[in-house]
Design a protein around this nucleic acid. Structure first.
Lengths: 217, 217
DNA sequence: TAGATTGTTAATCGATTAACAATC
DNA sequence: TAGATTGTTAATCGATTAACAATC
């Protein structure tokens, strides 16, 4: 039956942040951190920190805190950061280029092994040393290399078609930057990074600030 | 006293998604949508949709639904998408380039009017028609143009220093892509888009899937 | 021992979902 | 009128915060 002790989603999203801070601590030669320290460095409540960390490790020492090295190790293990995972990227535009060149990738165990795009003008060029291939070769490559992860950086209109091809070829996790809802079978995970959501949030905040300003004057 | 009827954060983050779907409906010539329709197209519960929309407009017509045109208008109004806002971007790397070229920007009322970078090699070049200027000129330009929004696409190590300069010059909202916590006065809003969080989430999911696979075999 | 900090339980808070009378 | 769908209240669910005995 495996571990069905599934972790709350908000907790899962905070774990990478603890991990980042722990790496910084290690860099700085710090051996132990308390939940209070971690709270200060992440902006989370200290009780929150303890609760989150207890989901993955109960090795904290009262009066002392958490051993930086071991906690970082547990987090990396838990998140699967040591597992190497190959990925393909579809959409060789500016955002695609940024992701291919993103150094964080490697440190999270991911490697973009192939880039696809349907624009013939692009398929003659290459991206960070990777040839840009036409979509016609995508499914075949995914199947042969048994690739499980796909990154979508095409415009919204073509995103669903791309997702269908990826899923059809065996991809199980999609990281999408296209502002649209993707329909996929339920054993496939889609994570949408929607920049427009962030922009709209900021726009709202700025509008509110300006309105308050006007009232003060 | 203004409107202290502040909107729940999860709701605020869903509004741009409704807005996007409404624009698509309008494009398709659809005049009315029900909360059920919107739920299907966004993936949210229909009761959720009604509750969210009632925060900004109670003009839905029982038996008929919401008038696409007017609802879209209310959303745009509420989110401040019609208000033009100038912004500066700091960090002319690949991600910076992707954002400067991002078409979504304009449709949310934002315009990147200046790009800064401290690498002398970059300051000779330009980005999508905008000259890349050295940081030494940043504060002055922000003050003169009374710019309220800054976008940070520099490495984590330099992000805090950049934020300090922006805030010192009068910026009130920061959109940061640097994986680090920024300390700012409490009247300044920081929105962090942390790609590492997304990556780690996906990594965890893929690890889980593989573990279950191993057990099945 | 005294001080600090853990892991965990209980209390609070807020968000989602269900239900339904009102109304087009 | 009959069918559909709203706005809203009440019920449920889940996450955050507070508190504290246990322990280094």
């Amino acid at each position: 039956m495996s571990r069905l002790v599934s972790i709350p989603k908000p907790t899962l999203e905070r774990l990478p942040i603890y991990y980042r801070v722990l790496l910084q601590c290690r860099e700085a030669g710090i051996k132990y951190v308390s939940s209070g320290d971690l709270g200060l460095r992440t902006g989370f409540d200290n009780a929150q920190v303890r609760k989150d960390l207890n989901h993955i490790w109960s090795g904290g020492r009262p009066g002392l805190g958490y051993e930086v090295d071991r906690l970082a190790g547990c987090l990396a293990e838990f998140l699967g950061l040591h597992n190497h995972t190959d990925a393909v990227l579809v959409g060789a535009g500016r955002l695609g280029a940024a992701l291919v060149g993103y150094p964080g990738f490697a440190s999270y165990g991911f490697e973009i092994v192939a880039v696809f795009d349907n624009d013939p003008e692009k398929t003659s060029r290459s991206l960070c040393g990777r040839p840009i291939m036409p979509m016609s070769r995508c499914a075949d490559l995914i199947e042969r290399l048994r690739i499980k992860m796909g990154i979508i950086t095409v415009p919204a209109e073509s995103a669903q078609a791309v997702a269908d091809i990826l899923v059809g070829a065996g991809v199980k996790a999609i990281w999408s930057f296209a502002p649209t809802k993707l329909e996929v079978p339920k054993d496939v995970l889609v994570r949408s990074e929607d920049l427009a959501v962030g922009l709209a949030t900021l726009s709202y905040y700025i509008k509110e600030q300006e309105m308050q300003h006007e009232q003060t004057n």
